[in-house]
Design a binder for these strands. Structure first.
Lengths: 206, 206
DNA sequence: ATTAACTGTGTACAAGCGTGCACAATATGC
DNA sequence: GCATATTGTGCACGCTTGTACACAGTTAAT
């Protein structure tokens, strides 16, 4: 075998996906031990330290991967060119599909939003804030809401992200419910976001 | 000492408040062991089983206590008689105050919404659903939104609860930030809820 | 008054935990 | 080609974990 860096990267990824596998099985990340993740990655426990300082360190690196997943999602949703009236509907549909396809990352995210260590929680939250910021950019670019003061646009974006994030937690538990339950969920989320943006359209500065 | 049931209830409560103490210290409930909670309650580990089947059982009983806290909150907010235009502002203010005073319960709730076992998660979520249902009752009673179909009122209430619940998670991390940060938070949440209810007022059935 | 039920104690065990340390294998820099 | 740095191994240590079991003290039931 050649190339030491490649080999290292390989076991590093083994460790990270072993951690995700743990989450995918319904376990909480915080209950994952170094020994367990090493066993699943097929290495000896102490080898863990060649890659990560501790489990928190691993979690932060998972957040970085999650960040890539979210950026990819943003790209996909943005290139969707639906009519303005149907843009929410289309985005929700696409989002739900994406959550299903990248399920484990969103599981990890929803766990870490409230669950993990302070630093991990903060890391995930700053990802969401970045998301909200990008949404603000989009709202400006579409040039709807010209009457709204900037601070309120921020609050609007924050509310949007909050709503979607909270809904995601519910969506993730709907895995073994029938497709009609998912349909109803999509419908509900769509209506709720429409409600918010009707509010935004009718907002008069206070 | 007399009265066995009283004594039993006492150590039972010791166990439960020991668990809450653990959460209050910033630890995650799922990382609390039987031995640790027993130690903190001042009993021997095996005594735990005289009261609870396992930690999940204890968690469910904590959810029951949480339920009482939430009902108390609902009562307090309801007897607040602010003008219709200021009702959101007043409710948010009162809510934030209540979260601060019952901090540990809301910490436990926010952990269990996404963190714990499936059964605990479901239990907390059904508490929130109950809350949403009560909100629907209130909205009907105030007889605003006569144009809105019942299903949409449900979605509105759900969105309200989601928003507040998600905001609570943020609020709980604002404990050591200054009072101006809390002020800003209250302002943001108020604006967001106003946004939602402006949307509701302008909703036309689809 | 005696018996039974209950609640908490103490001990014990196997399993799992984090992690320090010496060592083997091997790719890399000179 | 040789010295070095890096990656993974294996072992060891002391600690914590869940829980089984026998037992003690006390209250409740008869």
């Amino acid at each position: 075998m050649k190339n030491r860096q490649e080999r290292k990267l390989l076991t590093r990824q083994s460790l990270m996906s072993a951690a995700l596998q743990w989450v995918e099985e319904g376990q909480h990340f915080s209950s994952l031990s170094i020994r367990e993740v090493a066993k699943r990655a097929g290495v000896v426990p102490t080898a863990f330290y060649r890659h990560f300082k501790d489990m928190d360190d691993l979690a932060l690196n998972l957040v970085d991967e999650l960040s890539l997943v979210l950026r990819q999602l943003m790209r996909e949703v943005r290139q969707e060119r639906a009519s303005p009236t149907r843009i929410i509907e289309a985005s929700v549909q696409q989002y739900c599909q994406y959550v299903a396809s990248q399920r484990v990352f969103f599981l990890f995210m929803s766990q870490s939003m409230t669950g993990g260590t302070t630093v991990v929680r903060q890391a995930v939250r700053s990802e969401l804030q970045y998301f909200a910021k990008e949404l603000v950019v989009d709202l400006r670019r579409l040039d709807l809401l010209p009457n709204m003061e900037p601070a309120m646009v921020d609050h609007l974006a924050d509310l949007t992200i909050s709503t979607v994030a909270f809904a995601t937690v519910q969506l993730l538990d709907l895995v073994d419910s029938g497709p009609q339950a998912r349909q109803a969920f999509e419908y509900k989320l769509t209506r709720q976001l429409q409600l918010i943006y009707i509010g935004a359209a009718n907002w008069r500065r206070a």
